[in-house]
């Protein structure tokens, strides 16, 4: 199930540059994956009861009104940007 091709695909889905470097334990990314997925496999022993609805972990409080209010100014939003120009975030070309 877990193979090199899957690991490389997951790096792409996660928007991470693929690196074959070993972990601090000296194991490859693939070996790490296999070990941890094996750790998850106990979940397969839980019987499925047919009810797939999972209740929310908390009851929501009263929802606030749906109104437009000022949150951040444009300058504040750009303040932490890696690169900006006038009122725009600057990014590399898409293609």
């Amino acid at each position: 199930m877990v193979n090199q091709s899957l690991v490389e695909r997951l790096y792409k889905l996660a928007a991470l540059q693929y690196s074959p470097e070993p972990s601090s334990a000296g194991s490859s990314p693939l070996a790490d994956f296999e070990q941890i997925i094996e750790f998850f496999s106990v979940l397969q022993q839980l019987p499925i009861t047919g009810d797939n609805n999972v209740p929310p972990c908390a009851v929501l409080g009263d929802l606030r009104s749906d109104e437009v209010v000022t949150s951040q100014t444009v300058n504040a939003a750009l303040d932490n940007a890696a690169q900006s120009h006038q009122s725009y975030f600057v990014v590399p070309r898409v293609m």
């Binding site: 690991v7 997951l10 790096y11 996660a14 928007a15 991470l16 540059q17 690196s19 972990s23 601090s24 990314p29 790490d32 994956f33 941890i36 997925i37 990014v91 590399p92 070309r93 898409v94 293609m95």
Partner: peptide
């Protein structure tokens, strides 16, 4: 770089190994 290359490089270099592991899993 392209946008996606920048994303991948930024996230790989910026996150530590445990965070990257958890994101992948």
């Amino acid at each position: 770089p392209t946008l996606s290359e920048m994303y991948a490089a930024t996230r790989f270099q910026g996150f530590g190994p445990e965070v990257r592991r958890r994101i992948l899993l």
